[in-house]
Each structure stands twice: as structure tokens, then as C-alpha cells.
Amino acid sequence: MRASRALGLSPRAAAALGLFLAVMLLLPFLVNAYIVSVLVVVLFAAYFGQSWNIMTGFAGQLSLGHALYVGLGAYTSAALFVHFGLTPWLGMIAGMAVAALAGSAIAALSFRFRVGGVYFALLTIAFAEFTRILFDHFGWVGATEGLFLPVANLAHDDPVRLRGSPVMFYYLLLVLSLAALVLSHSLLDRRVGYYWQAIREDEEAARALGIDVFRYKIAAMALSAAMTALGGTLLAFYDNNLYPDTVFAMGRSIEIIIAPIIGGLGTLFGPIVGAFLLTGLGETMTNLSTYFEISGLKQWFYGAALLAIVALQPSGLWPWLSRALGLWERRR
């Protein structure tokens, strides 16, 4: 009960969340390996969405290049592991630091020069693409040939070296996503969260209330980038191979942001709801289209579904869903 109060939930919402958690905890025992692998994709999407949500949903700065931080986290930890045998947990911290630095630098450059709105969004794409091409030529991490983590056939999972089964990654990601949920909630409830939202709603008014907008925007970007990079490390050790053209892909940046948008930008549960919906949708489409064997059909339905959502629930599914289920989220 204390935990539910800490999250600011009504009893009913707390019960729903508890039920959801219990199901998520038991799920790997109940379903087959394919479903587990899909759930891992869901949790990656949820976690990346939660990380991005801090920058764009809370602080209101539209970043379209978050694959950059996935890639920095993934490559930093993987390269340190491959070349020096450094444990991924330390590599993860290094990756987070690199990403936070890159994020702050990009944000500082942009905001110092008053690049905002659409221009900022396009600038984030430019940095991500630029980095992708650099990594294409970065021999130390394999360039276009890719960087591979040695796959050991272990008898049991080894969380210390992050070598293990999808189930292990499932639980790691579940914990991570929960942690991100608690962190997001606690941030929103503090001065920094209020300030971010004020900046999102009206920068000039925020300034007039004594908020150092520049500093708070950079803080949002640094945190969001570091969290994203953490997920990047897990992704690297889950996939075991890294290619610049997939890790830093523009398509990944876009995937990262679709889930929170259709779930409900700036809400706590939106990224999670969006991740389930989107991944589920994608998997269904893939399975359906293998029956019909028409290339493009999957993407077509996917596009149509996005269109339907933006037409019917432009502010996202979670606000609507939570009202329908009587689980009012107290705060946006």
C-alpha cells in the first residue's frame, strides 16, 4: 500500500498495477520461447520510450535522433567488453557517461544558439546520422563489418557478464522498466519535473518564474540520453552483434518515439501501453503477411493503424484507456 501511495495511485489503479506486475513476473513460465522473445522486444520498446519520454514528453524538446544514444551505449560497452574484457556493468556506466556527454553537448550547442522546435528535431537527426556514418568507418569497432560479442553456450545464465537466455533479459528489462517508471514518477513530483513541464508548456513564462531554462533542458537531455544508453548496453548483449546501419538507424529513432506518442506523450504509463500495442501490432502483421506473401502489406497496415490512432486518439491511448478503466492517473 505504501508503494501505491508513493506512486500516487488510487486503490483501484494500484490493484491493476499489481495484477499487471504479477502477470508480467509469471509470464515466462506460461508461454513459449517465441512469445518471450516478443515480450523482450516489447520491454525494450517500453524502456526506450520511457527514456525518450523524459526529454520530449516531460521537458517538451522533440528529439528525433535517440538511436544515437542507443548506439553509443551499445558500442561503448560492447567494445570495452570485446577488447578489454570489461564487465558490461562497468561498460554500461561508461556508455551512459558517453551518451550523457554527447546529449548535453548537442543540447548545449543547440540551445545556446537558440535552435528550437522543428530545427532542434532536425538537428538531432543530423547528429545521429552523422555518427552512424562515422561508425561505418570506425575500424576499431568493426565499421560496416559489424562488432560481434562472443556467444558462449552456457549451462545457465550469467548476469554478471550479461550472457544468457532471453528469459534473463526479460527479467532484467522488466526491472529496468519498473525502475524507469518509479524514477519518472518521482521526477514529475519534484521541482525538476514541474520545471520541465513548465518549459514544455511555455518557455517564456517559465523564464519569468526564475527557471534557468537552458540548464534544465540540458539536464533533461543528459538524463534521457544516459537512460537510453543503458538500454543500448542490454541491446548489444542481447543481440550479440552490432552494425552501425541498424543500431544507429533513423528507423530505430522513429520506433523509439512512436510507442510513447501513441501511448500518450508525457504520461507515466503511455510508453508501456504504446510498446505493447505497437509490438503486438507489428508481430500480428508479420504473421499475417507471411500467409499472404505480399511485400509491403505489413507496412501498409502498420501505417493505417498509426493513421487511425492519430485520427481517433491524437493525445494517446493511455489517457483514454485509464479513464475507461477508471484508473485516473492523477497527473498528466
Binding site: L62, I257, I261
Partner: peptide, 12 residues
Amino acid sequence: HEQFLLLLAVAT
């Protein structure tokens, strides 16, 4: 972000 999603859907 809503405009972005809309045009992304159209593009897809």
C-alpha cells in the same frame, strides 16, 4: 509530435 506521427503514417 502529432503532425510528425500523421505524416509518418502517410509516409509508411
